[in-house]
Design a protein around this nucleic acid. Sequence first.
DNA 1: GCAACATTTCGGTGGGCGCCGAACTGTCCC
DNA 2: GGGACAGTTCGGCGCCCACCGAAATGTTGC
Lengths: 233, 233
Amino acid sequence: MTDARTLASVACLLGDESRAAMCLALLDGGAWTVSVLAEAASVGRAAASEHVARLVAGGLVTTETQGRHKFVRLAGPRVAELVELLSGFGTPAPARSLAAVRERTRLAAARTCYDHLAGRLGVAVHDALVGRRMLTHRGGLGLTPRGRDWFADLGVDLPGLEAQRRALLRECVDLTERTPHLAGSLGAALCEEFLTRDWVRRRGRTRTLEVTPLGERAVADLLGVAPADLAVG
Amino acid sequence: MTDARTLASVACLLGDESRAAMCLALLDGGAWTVSVLAEAASVGRAAASEHVARLVAGGLVTTETQGRHKFVRLAGPRVAELVELLSGFGTPAPARSLAAVRERTRLAAARTCYDHLAGRLGVAVHDALVGRRMLTHRGGLGLTPRGRDWFADLGVDLPGLEAQRRALLRECVDLTERTPHLAGSLGAALCEEFLTRDWVRRRGRTRTLEVTPLGERAVADLLGVAPADLAVG
DNA sequence: GCAACATTTCGGTGGGCGCCGAACTGTCCC
DNA sequence: GGGACAGTTCGGCGCCCACCGAAATGTTGC
């Protein structure tokens, strides 16, 4: 009874088109100001402010004020997971324009899911890591000695990550591929590394990623992933 | 843009307390009539009928009419997953009565999640199966020869399940334990076996399960799970 | 055919909520 | 200090939607 109320109150937050648009925008894992969110949702600043307040109250986002700006970001990986899962429901959407189709295709090819890699790129990297015995699935996801070396070579500060409260390794079911990709703090670190090395680039202010030629070569060399497996449909 | 609309439309369906109560009730995986759902949600039959129609339109439930009855059930495991995930959000709920606390404790100990085992029981069974090398995690969840024998001995028709379109093995993150339990058609078959052997019993018309003394002995013998690990907190 | 029952459809009502414009607070920069 | 700007608060408007009661549709069993 009272349980239904809490479920409904959370679902209700995402049940409004403006708030849904905001949360989708925030899926890139970044911090957005209220004004920018207002624009993303096509509403006025006043409405956006109220929406953000409700999302904060519901625990879906957190805010941080810096001077006259207020930065909004998703409250954590679990929220991102929820938004991703929900956005995969409903009719696959009629896709009314060619531009919309292209955008969706790009999204399926490579994107961020909160703060880690997703789409075909994310799944390919995950599968390659497992296939090359850098990750193991014995009783939960684990890192092999070989995997430790690989990540260390890449410049990932493993001890630093392990000191965090957040889980190092987690699987996240990919929205479009329906098979797991790598999440957790290590997934986040890997994604960051891809971005700083210019292996992938964000397309504008979205969570769509573009794999650079440099990146194609890198994943081919390091993981044996053929560029054709990543090509935009 | 248009993507936000589809997300919102789905979330909106679960954003109403009555519909949320209905979906929570349906989490037991069974088929409920419209009248019974009306009672579960504390609304009139007219309102319940409209809610069911909307849930059908949104693809969250399916219906089957038999004579003057209309049976409603969740549209599939993914919907159950979504409802479970959502119900784990929000404030852990103030739990206003002792009865509510007891119910929640029982729910955490053992319950069904759509059509398979969840809660501490579900996780314990999953972990025992992995620990005893009946399930393996090498490149996706798999069944070892030893596991095949074990399930066959239990009376599960493995070839029959494998002929289905539905995945045999899947992991489902447990709502209360935050660690995976066994889902998929094999998870469903296992749950059914537990019920027909009277190892677990449904508590009334809920998804809460009660482990019988017979069941405690069975999981101890077959899987080495100590009864203390299943005791109601 | 008739009575009992499950479900649906149809007005009608009330409340909640999303939106805006305008006024207000607080911050930054010149 | 003054102007520009980000964000919030406050009325107020309008719409959507959840609900109910009553009537209609279908089904079952006599």
